[in-house]
């Protein structure tokens, strides 16, 4: 069975629903505190998928994700690197995305697993906001198959965001150009018709409406919206209107991750 490690620490708070989403997708999942990895009590190599869930690790003190990102960098760097080199998938959701970016693991264009090439910073509105957004799957290399997490996914998804620091900014023009060229931008914020529309459709002021990206291998995927909060129709804000039943838009992401692990690991 595919084993998922859901990494947690002080202030992680989307761990249980993330674990539940993986279980619904057919994996087994375990919540593991970073202390248990850094002390060696648990080993990353025992798992097939690493998920870094949402929350406020260390209270977002100093900057969101920064402190746990440094722990990945300074305490379990080798384990993470080996995990990636072994072709195992990683997903970072919301705070998890911030952590991956601030640890230099996403987008990792340099290939050195540590250079910081982008950031997620304070929303333009300067406050935390919780709302449902539309995401367009970017066509092109990334969309057609590089990212193992989003293979065959719908063109237009509806998922909730809930964050105060989700504004994606690439370090410079060159990084942005490479993200585009290499097809690493996976999701963009759009309106219900798939068009760019500004705030509040782009809820945080992200550069070029970027909502989620992956690395060059397609294994590591980060996004600000919460796919684990829409795996059942009952979680949609308009389920009493639209009459759809069954799985929510976020479910396919977990299913893809688990299926990939099943096939390749």
């Amino acid at each position: 069975m595919v084993r998922v490690i859901v990494l947690r620490t002080a202030g992680t708070n989307c761990d249980r629903e993330t674990a539940f989403a993986f279980e619904e997708a057919g994996a087994s999942s375990e919540l593991v505190h970073i202390n248990k990895l850094s002390s060696g009590e648990k080993k990353l190599s025992d798992y097939h998928i690493l998920a870094i869930p949402g929350g406020f690790s260390y209270g977002d003190d100093i900057a969101s994700g920064k402190i746990l990102a440094n722990e990945l960098k300074f305490k379990i760097e080798e384990g993470i690197k080996q995990f990636i080199l072994n072709g195992k998938p990683i997903i970072g959701i919301c705070n998890g995305f911030q952590i991956l970016v601030k640890a230099g693991l996403l987008p990792n264009l340099s290939g050195d697993f540590k250079t910081i090439e982008a950031t997620l910073t304070l929303n333009d509105s300067a406050k935390f906001e919780s709302r449902w957004v539309y995401l367009r799957r970017v066509k092109g290399q990334g969309g057609t198959g590089k990212c193992v997490w989003t293979k065959g996914i719908k063109d237009l998804l509806c998922l909730p965001v809930a964050h105060g620091e989700g504004k994606f900014i690439p370090k410079d023009k060159n990084i942005l150009a490479r993200l585009k060229k290499e097809g690493l931008i996976i999701f963009e914020y759009v309106d219900e018709n798939g068009r760019y529309k500004g705030y509040p459709y782009n809820p945080n002021g992200s550069v070029e409406n970027i909502a989620g990206i992956c690395d060059k291998t397609g294994q590591i995927f980060g996004l600000m919206p919460h796919p684990e909060r829409y795996i059942s129709y009952l979680q949609h804000p308009r389920w009493t209107r639209i009459g759809s039943r069954g799985r929510g838009d976020g479910f396919a992401i977990f299913k893809n991750g688990v299926e990939f692990a099943k096939k390749h690991l």
């Binding site: 935390f128 919780s130 909060r229 804000p237 308009r238 209107r241």
Partner: peptide, 20 residues
């Protein structure tokens, strides 16, 4: 400004309707 979706259990949210 409040996260009303965390823990994943929200069925009816405080804001409802065609534009939420």
């Amino acid at each position: 400004q409040y996260d009303h979706e965390v823990q994943g259990g929200s069925v009816l949210k405080p804001l409802q309707g065609i534009k939420n």
